[in-house]
């Protein structure tokens, strides 16, 4: 069974979705990702969906779920590079992914993630010693 690779970059995890998502794949991603966050104590997750051309309500909801789970595990999620057609579809489906941070591209997403994590770091969050 295929998996979506999860790359570790410092204290962030990078997920680039480059194939069309189907339900099994997104469920597997959810499990892999939560495992990796717990294992690496990552502070942020960046999901790049710029090559995703199509979403349905299930995948849309799963994106929201993944963000929620990551937050519970102490990692912020940023979804970047959503295509206009995908954004319109999600809105028409009534899924506006509240609670998920978004950015235009990976670079802006990384900036946002750093800013958010830095802000959180101020209030004495669990920072692992390097």
């Amino acid at each position: 069974m295929e998996h979506i690779p999860i790359l570790k970059m410092g204290e962030f995890l990078l997920v680039t979705i480059q194939v069309d998502m189907h339900d099994r794949l997104v469920t597997a991603l959810q499990e892999d990702l939560t495992d990796r966050i717990a294992a690496t104590l990552a502070r942020g997750v960046l999901i790049d969906i710029s090559s995703l051309q199509m979403v349905d309500s299930f995948i849309g909801r799963m994106l929201g779920n993944i963000a929620g789970m990551s937050r519970v595990l102490g990692a912020e999620t940023v979804v970047v590079g959503m295509q206009p057609s995908v954004a319109i579809t999600l809105v028409e489906l009534g899924l506006s992914l509240r609670g998920v941070r978004t950015a235009l591209d990976v670079e802006k997403g990384m900036d946002l993630l750093r800013a958010v994590v830095e802000q959180d770091g101020d209030d004495g969050g669990a920072v692992e010693p390097e």
């Binding site: 979804v79 992914l97 978004t102 950015a103």
Partner: peptide, 12 residues
Amino acid sequence: LKTVAAARLMGA
């Protein structure tokens, strides 16, 4: 609001 939500999803 729909337009705003869609733009937000794109990161704007």
